[in-house]
Design a protein around this nucleic acid. Structure first.
Lengths: 224, 224
DNA sequence: GCACAATTAAAACGTCCGTTTGAATCGTCT
DNA sequence: AGACGATTCAAACGGACGTTTTAATTGTGC
């Protein structure tokens, strides 16, 4: 049946890509493990690129929807008052990390997400940027509201660092277990989320280094 | 002349890998841009893997030496007293980031470093782990000395987050320029370093969430 | 039950890859 | 000058890849 073939390909591709990366996984490997014909990928998806996009989009869409929903809820909770930066961070971090704990499927996706973010191929970058355009815009504004006392430049850098901590944890959650001699348990989603929120909120709210801030005001062209 | 060929291959490979990633760069591309014969790679290096290792090792070795040297200096400065976490962070972060500002070569290497760290192939992971074994050990101890009040588990997580911020900045330094509409200048090494140190030190020193810390003490097997 | 579209199947296509081969060339020393 | 190791070169090898083609099979509406 068609739907089963399509689903099986998607599931198998997701699993293999999350384990090995996009380049290292051939269509022949995917189709042989999925027990479907090699040509089925092109029949159902058109190309490997389109398959990769579908695999990624299928999972990231609900994650990003949940992110926006949590941000909406956080903003609704505050009314017009100050927006706690912890809430913004949680909205950004919790949906993907929570998946890691959920089941094997979720864990696979989180790995794949990190892998894809780190991927260098142009078409992957394009897929990524397309799917994250709204998220970037909404969260940039939210962090601005949550941290009005932090200058724009500093805030942009610190959000960048926070995203780095998140991506790195998603991509490399096993490495921390190895490097910490098993002390840290990356499958503890609640703990991971709370620790990351704690770490990033402290970093985001740190006092601004005045010396560095004053050294900055050379005119910077704002593009686009 | 032999040395020139070898150097040219190394330089060209470094440039191309930093731009496109390992998998996306073929030996044919490297040798054609370097204007040397295809077989020269195998003559001088033995294999593509060995070339990649050499390319990476050539640059990372002095970086890691400088890191250890800065850590030594920081520890010498304190005598037996408390070790400022900012000094440890600076020893970790400054050597690679400083390269970014230095010249085109350095910038290329920093990109490549981020790319390689994110690479999924097994042999790349092996190269990386080999070259970083000492660094991991020394810095783990240094962070322990600098943050005795932070429990081991929390500190391991926070160092992991800090490394994530660093890797992400090394890998994706252009993305912050784009996302911040040109506000942030990744070629300002001093600013980048100070901001990252500020961010990470605040995160590393944040108060430990007691609820999370108390939820933790299930017995965790320490492997190896 | 038949016609027709949707799907699956097997095989081949052309391309690019890392690697190897064997001869030609270069540099250096006697 | 001649010999010999070091290096360069053109060419080919075998394999893997994404994609395409063409035929067989299946499912569905009349």
């Amino acid at each position: 049946m068609a739907i089963d073939t399509k689903q099986t390909i998607l599931d198998t591709a997701e699993r293999l890509i999350s384990e090995k990366g996009i380049d290292a996984v051939s269509l022949r490997l995917i189709t042989s493990e999925a027990k479907v014909n090699l040509a089925a990928v092109h029949y159902h998806f058109g190309s490997k690129e389109a398959l990769v996009e579908k695999v990624f989009q299928r999972r990231i869409t609900p994650v990003n929807q949940r992110r926006l929903q949590m941000l909406d809820e956080a903003e609704a909770r505050t009314g017009g008052g100050p927006l706690p930066v912890e809430d913004v961070l949680r909205a950004l971090i919790e949906p993907p990390i929570r998946l890691y704990q959920a089941d094997g499927e979720g864990r696979r996706f989180v790995h794949m997400c990190g892998r894809i973010y780190a991927e260098q191929a142009d078409y992957v970058q394009r897929i990524f940027d397309d799917l994250f355009q709204d998220i970037v815009a909404r969260f940039s504004r939210a962090f601005g509201r949550a941290l009005p006392e932090v200058p724009d430049v500093e805030r942009a850098w610190r959000v960048h660092f926070s995203v780095g901590a998140m991506i790195h944890t998603m991509l490399d959650s096993e490495r921390i277990q190895r490097f910490s001699n098993g002390l840290c348990d990356p499958s503890d989603a609640d703990g991971t989320i709370e620790r990351m929120v704690r770490f990033c909120s402290a970093g985001l709210r740190a006092e601004v280094n005045e010396a560095a801030a004053e050294a900055e005001p050379k005119n910077v062209e704002v593009e686009q």
